[in-house]
Design a protein around this nucleic acid. Structure first.
Lengths: 404, 404
DNA sequence: ACTAGTTTGTTGCCTTTGGCAACAAAAAGC
DNA sequence: GCTTTTTGTTGCCAAAGGCAACAAACTAGT
């Protein structure tokens, strides 16, 4: 169902996105960009200002690079103090909170060491909640929190942690636990780490160069996320993009927890280091040691990375064949090894794919260790800037977020 | 940009879809289903009747099963004579045309033998065009043609046939050729056969039981199509779902054209029959012969299908891991072999996928040899019943299709 | 310095759309 | 036959966008 009010909602969201994407501009320019009348645009801006979503740029900057004739417009921009978005990552050994402003620029981060194995889920969530609260203190001037997204390395199903191998959690009602501990009107999302990173990447390269992008996260385990038009593709149960389960052979080097044949057991950290040892690498080498050895051209590392690259290429071919993405981004602590096999991997992909089939571009993630938490903030931001089908059906003119 | 007229467009499309999905009903019932006022619903129906899209059911049927008190409503339904949709398949050895009514029910089909190898693309398209024209004769009483979709076993890119191995076509501007030969105002689509079959399946089981469905087409080559919410997922270049390129091993039984390791070279018809011969099957066995031998429990066939099933299972695992579909449908002339390995395949999938990962349901396609052409008709139908973003931006109140 | 020309933001009026209330019509139940 | 219930239609209202007009603010040229 749509009502005359739905039109305003749709146009307001479009206006907000145009300002987010293309930066501040005058009402007249915005109207032209959206194909709306100046008067209509003016009304929309009035509404958005009432919601503290946009603001008139105080000191109108005087240098119009191509000198434009006529009365200069008042620049409208996303209100930097219109609110904040909070992303929080609950990792195996670290809690990280990232706060972004309305432009989704990071304005604050906190990170503390953490030992998931040593405490119950309840205690972990308590610690996370107090870290979030502590982080929010002192930035009340940036406006109200518009939402929170907790990111966790786990298979999720509707706010419930089905299985978090690295944390040792099973069937934990994380959503309900967070709801109890946070303000009642705060929208709360929960997301898988690979998915959050995938969204973070589309926010980084704001250009959104490709409609379909796959993100491959290579740590101990191997996960992934798929974005279509910048939004997550989740599959029926939310498990799409679990690339670790791709079959790339019959064996693998998993340490028992991983299934033989899985991409995970070929290119994951455990597998890589296991094979490294086998080839003569030091017994207790870390991934950083391995990468250093690679840069120095050590033989054991070179041999190891070559096998690693072949398995990776096979996995990437599978992803390309199914999704036809424009870009595949590699992330996680193991991903930097790709530099040393890039040419080989690309050659393999072009060989294995049909000649008429365009192979995707492969890139390394440029996100740092806060990437997942930042992705969480992006997800809440995205939610606010996206059209909510349910809102179209309402005659409610308020543009505020729905409760989670 | 949205205007007050966009609201009418959105609501009219919703009404049309409700009538298509749930069958005829009164204005009052429709209004309740959509959450719209009775008066608004009445206005929308007036508009739709003017477009010959819906009609008042002539003889109001008198048996209200749960006897309802009050004035009985006039049943509104999709106008069966409101127009026709044409799907046409250009196969290797057959031309098929299927015509459906506004409810997307097949009302006519024609199929003639054809020899693609023996003639130029121009001649082939000529023959197809005259078959379509001949089919349309004599059904003018069903209303105007609302669109045509030509289905072809090829890699397509924006109306251009990039590569049709089985037809021997390369870089043929099929779209332009059809445009020349058909009425200027007829919307024309061109689609890959596997994609058309995928859409046909979602139209068959109108229930649309799952949001994400993968269709695997197993003929000589192996292709596929992916639907999300009933609509095709195409990837950046329109090549998503090219499952034939999945890597399931190192060898395979391709006849030179197929690449080693590809799913295609393991489970395609050529590969299957090649392996069948190797295991002692008759030298010139057809796929039908093979399936008969299977039903009769012949040893060579049983051994062959067992290997075939293992490769298939590996391919299905890849699809499940990437897409997390609720259902994978197997189609094509080789698909019936699945019955003999169903249990084994499902066991393998459950073994290879993580326990928390829900394996998709696997089913055999129930579409007959006209399935692809029918899918073409479905695609045009779907196009008319879907919201066109471009239309929202227009203040044009007419609901007719855009030119292709 | 001054005028002409251009662009901006706002205001009033019109059209389209959906919601609401009222009404006659048509059926069931008593 | 009368009451009750439901349907489809008809005015009237509010909300939204388009259009035209206007004052304001700035550039360019004289």
């Amino acid at each position: 169902m749509a009502t005359p009010q739905s039109v305003r909602y749709l146009n307001a969201i479009s206006a907000l996105n145009a300002l987010f994407r293309d930066g501040g501009m005058s009402r007249a320019d915005l109207g032209r960009a959206l194909g709306l009348n100046r008067s209509t645009t003016g009304n929309i801006i009035t509404d958005l200002m009432a919601e503290r979503l946009v603001i008139e740029h105080a000191a109108a900057p005087r240098p119009p690079d191509p000198p434009r004739v006529g009365r200069p417009g008042i620049v409208i921009e996303i209100d930097p103090a219109g609110g904040i978005f909070i992303g929080a990552e609950l990792g195996v050994d670290r809690l990280t909170v990232v706060v972004t402003d309305m432009m989704c620029h990071q304005i604050l981060r906190r990170s503390v060491p953490f030992d998931a194995a040593g405490r119950s889920p309840e205690m972990s969530v308590d610690q996370m909640a107090s870290l979030i609260r502590a982080t929010m203190e002192g930035i009340a001037d940036r406006g109200p929190p518009r939402g929170l997204c907790v990111v966790i390395p786990a298979l999720l199903e509707g706010g419930i942690v089905r299985n978090a191998l690295t944390l040792g959690w099973r069937d934990v009602s994380l959503g309900a636990m967070l709801r109890e501990r946070m303000a009642a009107d705060l929208p709360i999302l929960i997301e898988n780490d690979a998915n959050a990173l995938a969204v973070a990447e589309t926010y980084r390269g704001t250009s959104q160069r490709f409609d379909v992008v796959a993100f491959l996260l290579i740590e101990n385990g191997v996960g992934g996320g798929i974005t279509v038009g910048g939004r997550l593709f989740r599959g029926v149960h939310g498990f799409a993009g679990e690339f670790g389960q791709l079959l790339v052979g019959k064996g693998g080097y998993g340490g028992g927890r991983q299934k033989p044949g899985h991409l995970e057991s070929y290119i994951g950290k455990d597998a890589l280091l296991g094979r490294y040892r086998e080839k003569g690498g030091p017994a207790n080498a870390t991934i950083e040691d391995f990468l250093t050895a690679l840069r120095r051209g050590k033989r054991a590392a070179r041999q190891t990375v070559s096998v690693w690259g072949r398995a990776l290429a096979r996995g990437l071919v599978q992803i390309a064949a199914v999704l036809n993405p424009g870009l595949i981004i590699l992330g996680g602590s193991v991903a930097p090894a790709f530099r040393h096999v890039a040419k080989e991997v690309e050659r393999t992909m072009n060989r294995e794919l049909l000649e008429t089939f365009p192979a995707p571009q492969i890139e390394l993630s440029t996100l740092g260790p806060d990437g997942a938490a930042f992705g969480g903030a992006c997800l809440v931001h995205q939610r606010m800037f996206s059209i909510d089908e349910r809102r179209i059906a309402q005659a409610d003119p308020a543009l505020t977020l729905l409760p989670a």
